[in-house]
Simulated scan of single mutants.
Amino acid sequence: MTQPSPEYLAAAKANLDAFFGVAGKVFEGVEKLAALNLQVVRATLAEAQENMTKVSGTTEPPQWFALQAGFTGPFAEKSLSYGRQVFDIASATQAEVTQLAQTHYERYNDPVQALVEEAAKHSPAGSEAAIAAWKSAIAATTTLYETLQKTGQQAVQVAGSNFDAVTATASKALQSNSGQAPVAAGAKR
């Protein structure tokens, strides 16, 4: 049985380190989402208890409807805030994973190119086509990596701007609705 070379062991260790680095970043993102969700559930339960206490103290239907209408605005604002926080956690996690992938790619791209160049220097006559194919494959991989990286960044930017637009529209709608006079019992809008 042959022993693996030191280069092979070093590459395997680097690949494992990269895998666990990415897994760690993803896990951190999941932890942040779980903490946010627990915080939201805790706050929602406390608010529901407070609201039920207020509602149970009302004796007239117009008071009850006014209280119910008052619950809608804060709920919508908190929903928008929650959505923003989820988006921020997801985009920060994506950025960290992308940075790790870029570091790993850059660490191995240059040595592979150097290996191909060294092989080209010492290759026998007639192997130019094989060396050209290797160089072409490396160039295609580099182009693919750069394209995927740019596409990912653009997707995050588009999603962020779309989320900002939806949030702004929803906030304006909330502000305009909260600025309207309450509807009297039996009145039509």
Rank of each mutant, 00 (worst) to 15 (best):
K121Y: 05
Q94E: 05
I131E: 05
Q99C: 00
E117N: 12
V97F: 09
G126Y: 06
A130W: 05
Q113T: 05
E118C: 03
Y108L: 08
E146A: 12
A130S: 09
S127F: 13
A120P: 08
A132N: 03
E96T: 13
Q99M: 10
P124Y: 06
S123D: 00
E118N: 06
L100N: 01
P111N: 01
A130K: 09
E128S: 07
Y108F: 09
P124E: 14
I138G: 00
L100S: 02
E117H: 09
K135R: 11
H122V: 07
I138E: 04
Q94S: 13
E146G: 02
S136H: 07
V97W: 04
T141N: 00
D110T: 13
A119E: 05
Y145N: 05
T143D: 10
A137M: 07
K121E: 14
L115I: 04
A133S: 13
G126I: 00
I131K: 13
S123C: 12
A133R: 10
A119G: 06
T147M: 00
Q99K: 12
A114D: 14
A132L: 04
P111H: 02
A132F: 03
T98S: 12
T147N: 07
T103I: 15
Y105H: 08
P111L: 02
T143R: 01
Q99F: 06
A137P: 00
N109F: 14
E117R: 15
A114R: 12
Q102W: 13
Q102R: 10
A119C: 13
E128Q: 13
T143V: 07
V116S: 04
A95F: 03
A114Y: 08
H104L: 12
A129T: 10
E118L: 10
E146K: 09
A120S: 11
T103C: 03
T147Q: 11
A133W: 09
A140D: 13
A130G: 07
R107W: 02
P124M: 04
A139F: 09
V112W: 10
L144C: 02
L100M: 06
S136L: 06
T141Y: 13
Q102T: 15
T142Y: 02
H122N: 15
Q113N: 15
N109T: 09
V116K: 02
A120E: 13
A119I: 12
S123G: 13
E146I: 01
I131L: 11
A140T: 08
Y108E: 13
H122E: 07
A139S: 11
A139W: 00
Y108R: 15
E146N: 10
A101D: 11
T143E: 11
T147D: 04
T147E: 08
I138D: 00
Q99Y: 02
Y105G: 00
Y108V: 14
T142I: 00
T103G: 06
E96N: 05
Y105P: 01
K121S: 10
E117Q: 14
H122K: 14
A139Q: 11
V112E: 09
H122Q: 10
R107V: 12
V116N: 03
A120D: 14
I131D: 07
E128N: 02
L144Y: 06
L148V: 07
A101V: 04
A120Q: 11
G126S: 01
A129E: 09
A101P: 00
V97G: 08
A139T: 11
I138N: 05
K135H: 01
